[in-house]
């Protein structure tokens, strides 16, 4: 039982990252009918921005500008890093939309998809060229405390990661469902052609969608950095692919769906690795997903009719 629960805890943490990245994919796909394949690399950029912001803040704190107890300083650095990096990374996302996607707004979808791939490669190799190939160590912002309950080890990091992920997912869902801008996004997802006629600024909504998705990716990147503190320029590739799968599994444009599917993918991967040899992890995980899609081709929360609009 403890063995099972321990894996459950591990899976929750692992799924959090997929969830946070999948939401960005899903939103862009929902609103603009676009696979933003650069999103995994935007996650990587977010992690690097987090690295620089937190290292900078820690250096600032060590000069003694503000004299606070160590625990408070670290907590403050973490919160500030999250906020600043999310804002900065949302600008990165908006820049990608403005430069990469807007000129292709009316181009065939395949052109836009390969633009995403190219932007991804530019971000990876750009990072490699500017920062060099060496790994970056993400600063330890949360001093690890391990709590053992009935043979299950839970760290404060894990709780925080899962907590923040769920919180952000729910907050974004509320934003899209309740706010006026959210309504505009849903309207665009519903009918791309008619919406501009109603006076909704399509470009602004597109920018906002990218910005929000990228902010979430930055949060994912920072949380990833606290759990797996070794950053490298290619860390976003595989993550991006898998999160994309989760986004499709969740259903087009559904934030909750992407969140749920992200966690589900985390669970499948962890439990496959505990039962079978780890070489079969991806094989079995993706076979399961194929089977699910065979029976639910539109994902968990996707709506069948929306597909006829532009594709």
């Amino acid at each position: 039982m403890a063995f099972f629960l321990q894996n459950l805890v591990n899976a929750l943490q692992w799924g959090s990252f997929y969830a946070l990245i999948a939401i960005g994919y899903s939103m862009v796909y929902g609103v603009l009918f676009l696979f933003n394949f650069a999103h995994g690399d935007i996650f990587m950029v977010g992690a690097y921005i987090g690295f620089f912001v937190s290292t900078g803040l820690l250096a600032l704190a060590s000069t003694g500008v503000v004299a606070l107890p160590e625990g408070v300083t670290l907590a403050l650095v973490l919160v500030l890093t999250l906020i600043i990096s999310m804002i900065l990374n949302s600008f990165v996302g908006m820049l990608v939309e403005r430069i990469g996607y807007r000129p292709l707004r009316n181009a065939p979808r395949a052109s836009a998809a390969i633009t995403g791939l190219m932007i991804g490669i530019i971000l990876e190799t750009g990072n490699l060229a500017i920062l060099g190939p060496q790994r970056r160590l993400f600063p330890d912002l949360i001093p690890t405390q391990t709590i053992t309950v009935a043979g299950v080890s839970i760290t404060n990091k894990k709780m925080l990661i899962v907590g923040i992920s769920i919180l952000l997912t729910v907050a974004l869902h509320q934003f899209v469902q309740r706010s006026k801008w959210g309504m505009a996004m849903r309207a665009m997802a519903y009918d791309y052609v008619v919406v501009p006629l109603m006076g909704i600024p399509v470009n602004t909504v597109a920018l906002m969608t990218f910005g929000l998705g990228s902010a979430l990716a930055a949060a994912g990147g920072i949380l990833y950095g606290t759990a797996y503190p070794v950053l490298d320029p290619n860390m976003g590739i595989l993550f991006g692919w898998k999160a994309f799968v989760a986004a499709i599994l969740g259903g087009r444009g559904s934030i909750l769906g992407a969140g749920v599917a992200g966690f589900l993918l985390g669970f499948i991967e962890i439990f496959v690795a505990t039962i079978f040899p780890s070489t079969m992890r991806n094989l079995i995980a993706f076979s399961i997903i194929m089977i699910i899609l065979t029976f639910r081709p539109h994902g968990f929360f996707g709506e069948p009719y929306s597909a006829r609009l532009r594709l």
């Binding site: 063995f3 894996n7 439990f271 505990t274 780890s278 992890r281």
Partner: peptide
């Protein structure tokens, strides 16, 4: 005798198995 593949960053499943 647990394995993973190059590029993996999460070893929690394997480590839990080893400890178990």
């Amino acid at each position: 005798f647990e394995s993973f593949t190059t590029g993996d960053t999460d070893f929690s499943a394997q480590l839990t198995k080893i400890m178990d």
